[in-house]
Simulated assay, not measured.
Amino acid sequence: MRVNESVHPPEVSHFHHRFEGWLGDELLEVFPCFLVSSALANALEETRLVGFSLRDVEVSTSPEFQELYPGRALPEFRWLKITGKDRDADFWLTPDSRLEVSSRTLGILRKFKIAHAVIEAPAG
């Protein structure tokens, strides 16, 4: 990752994620970034949601990953770059950098593997 750490959250200009392990989810948080499977990325694009862009991400696996999961292939991933600023978008970040999504987005996400995501009801 090429990171500008002089701002918070850090700004990332190039994203390379090396997997140490993977539990199978299609939405992953790798602070300050998010990854989505290509299948999920396609579904998000098709529904014309707003507040994000999709970028390429470089993915590799560690020797530990290869030892723990011999022969396991990862799906293709895309970098889900959050651009929404508030609830007028379908994706946005809270001041403490947590991802929030519209109910429409959540409906789409629930059709994919997100078993390890912490999903909280909206406040208020």
Rank of each mutant, 00 (worst) to 15 (best):
R2T: 11
N4V: 10
N4L: 11
E5Y: 15
V7T: 11
V7C: 08
H8V: 11
H8F: 15
P10I: 15
P10W: 12
P10E: 09
E11F: 10
V12P: 00
V12I: 15
H14K: 13
H16V: 04
R18V: 03
R18L: 01
F19Y: 06
F19V: 02
E20V: 07
G21P: 02
G21M: 04
G21H: 05
G24R: 08
G24Y: 07
G24D: 05
D25E: 08
L27R: 04
V30C: 03
V36D: 00
V36A: 02
V36H: 01
V36G: 02
S38N: 11
A39I: 07
L40N: 04
L40W: 02
L40R: 04
A41H: 02
N42C: 10
A43F: 07
A43D: 12
E46S: 14
E46A: 14
R48M: 09
L49K: 06
G51A: 09
S53P: 05
S53N: 14
L54F: 11
L54C: 09
R55E: 13
E58V: 06
E58C: 10
V59Q: 00
E64S: 11
F65I: 06
Q66H: 10
E67W: 13
E67Y: 13
P70I: 08
R72M: 14
R72T: 14
A73P: 05
L74N: 06
E76M: 09
R78D: 00
W79P: 01
I82W: 00
T83C: 06
T83V: 08
D86V: 04
R87M: 00
A89E: 07
D90G: 12
F91N: 00
F91E: 00
W92M: 02
L93T: 03
L93S: 02
P95I: 00
R98M: 05
L99V: 06
L99C: 06
S102E: 02
S103F: 05
R104Q: 11
T105F: 03
L106T: 09
G107Y: 06
L109F: 07
K111G: 10
F112P: 04
I114W: 07
H116C: 14
H116K: 11
H116R: 15
A117T: 08
V118S: 15
I119S: 08
I119R: 10
E120T: 14
P122I: 02
A123Q: 12
G124R: 13
